[in-house]
Structures are given as structure tokens and as C-alpha cells.
């Protein structure tokens, strides 16, 4: 069969995955502490081509890759713009690092520092998760204590879990306290989604999608022609 038919299909699927990602980035353009994702692609299933299809080291005419796949989706950890709010329970981290919040017995990490006070006086985030201090203890809101900053060796390998939170993975390394982390009160970090880049990527992905679609249609007509060769009209 035409391998090209499958190549083009893979192309369409990959472009669709990219549009899904762009869609998520653009939906979160006004989400505090959000980190945009970026996608990389790779050509795979490389195979050797031979003259007259006879495999030998003399008849090789080069290599051909038969598929494109998404090779990675990674968050971009660049800092979003800091927005001054004047609210004393708003915090932003100037530089690298994350705030730690406790959800049940799990500790999550976030850069969204829009905090509130729980009925028992603890600093909590918008989802009611306790904000933690340097010793991973809850902070009393009126104590004047700042939330602690934690960081990992490779932040781009953190796993996103929704709710503006990240958890460490084997590749990111464990979270450790960053005593030099700079927390700014009365500020929030806006989303780092670059809407211009996302729109350009959207156009690109869509164009590639249409090209792949045309490739499928072309090959379909070639096969139709093939079927009709020799038919008596």
C-alpha cells in the first residue's frame, strides 16, 4: 500500500495534538501562575530504501522516515509578568521557585500566589489548600510570615496536575527549600502564555493539517486511478 497515506495521517494527528495544546494555552492566558506548554516533534520509523526493492549494501539509495510523532510536551518555565495588586494576601515569586501547598497528605507546588485565610486563620490558596512555610508547616495569616520558596533541579520536567499545581517526577528531582527565594507581597504572576506565538503556531498547525489532508486526498485519487487502469469503458 501507499506508505504515504499513513505518513499523512500521522501528520494530521500530530497537528491535531498541537492544536489541542495551543487551545489549552490560550484558554489559560488569564490564569495566574500558569506556564505555557510547548511541543516537539520527531521523525520515526526510519528505513533503508533499495533500488528495485532488492536489499543489499550495493543497492541502497538512502533512508526514508515514515512517521512523525509528538516527542515531548514540556512547560516553559519562563516568568510571567508580575502584576501589582496591592492586596496583602497576594504573593509572587520573583525568579525561580514554587510555593508549596498541602492537599490531604500530598504536597503540591504552584506559582499562583493568590491566597486567602481559612476559618482557623491559616493561609490557604483559592482551592483551600494550606500554604506551607520553610518547615512544611501551615502558616498563620496574621503571623506576618512569608510563604517559603521551594525549587527543583529541572523544573521543566515537573508534572502538571491541574489546579495551577505541579508535582515532582524522577527527572525533575525532589523539591528542596530555596532560602534565597524572593517572595513579593502585593503582586501576582500572570500567565506566561504568549498569545502572538500561540496564534502563529495555530496558523502553522492548521496549514500543516490542511497540507496533510490534501496529501491523503491526492493519494486516494492515485489509488482510484490505479483501480481504474485497465478497466474497459
Amino acid at each position: 500500500m501507499h506508505t504515504g497515506l499513513y505518513d499523512a495521517t500521522m501528520g494530521m494527528l500530530v497537528d491535531q495534538a498541537q492544536v489541542d495544546m495551543i487551545s489549552n494555552n490560550l484558554a489559560n492566558v488569564n490564569t495566574y501562575g500558569f506556564k505555557a506548554d510547548s511541543m516537539t516533534f520527531a521523525a520515526t520509523m526510519q528505513r533503508e530504501l533499495y533500488r528495485e526493492n532488492i536489499p543489499s549494501k550495493f543497492s541502497s539509495i538512502g533512508k526514508m522516515t515514515n512517521a512523525v510523532v509528538v516527542s515531548s510536551v514540556l512547560p516553559k518555565m519562563s516568568e510571567g509578568a508580575l502584576q501589582q495588586t496591592g492586596r496583602k494576601l497576594d504573593y509572587a515569586i520573583d525568579g525561580n521557585g514554587f510555593f508549596a501547598v498541602r492537599e490531604g497528605n500530598q504536597i503540591l507546588y504552584t506559582r499562583d500566589g493568590s491566597f486567602n485565610v481559612s476559618p482557623n486563620g491559616e493561609l490557604v490558596d483559592n482551592m483551600g489548600r494550606e500554604v506551607l512555610g520553610a518547615a512544611l508547616q501551615p502558616i498563620m495569616a496574621d503571623s506576618g510570615q512569608m510563604p517559603a520558596v521551594f525549587n527543583v533541579a529541572n523544573p521543566i520536567y515537573l508534572q502538571k496536575v491541574g489546579g495551577n499545581a505541579f508535582v515532582p517526577t524522577a527527572q525533575s528531582g525532589p523539591f528542596v527549600l530555596d532560602p534565597n527565594g524572593k517572595v513579593m507581597q502585593g503582586y501576582l504572576e500572570t500567565s506566561n502564555v504568549n498569545a502572538v506565538k500561540e496564534m502563529v503556531d495555530l496558523i502553522n498547525a492548521f496549514q500543516n493539517y490542511q497540507i496533510a489532508q490534501k496529501a491523503i486526498i491526492t493519494q486516494d485519487s492515485m489509488m482510484t486511478t490505479g483501480i481504474n487502469v485497465g478497466s474497459v469503458t
Binding site: N24, N25, A27, N28, T31, S72, N116, Y157, K160
Partner: peptide
């Protein structure tokens, strides 16, 4: 070395009164 994931958008979590 890298993950592969897809997000599903955004949701409203709070209206904070200042």
C-alpha cells in the same frame, strides 16, 4: 526524558473581593 500530556482548559476557581 520528557512527558507527554495534554491539558483540557481552564476553570473558574474564585472571585476574590479586594
Amino acid at each position: 526524558p520528557t512527558g507527554l500530556y495534554v491539558g483540557h482548559g481552564t476553570r473558574l476557581v474564585a472571585t476574590n473581593r479586594l
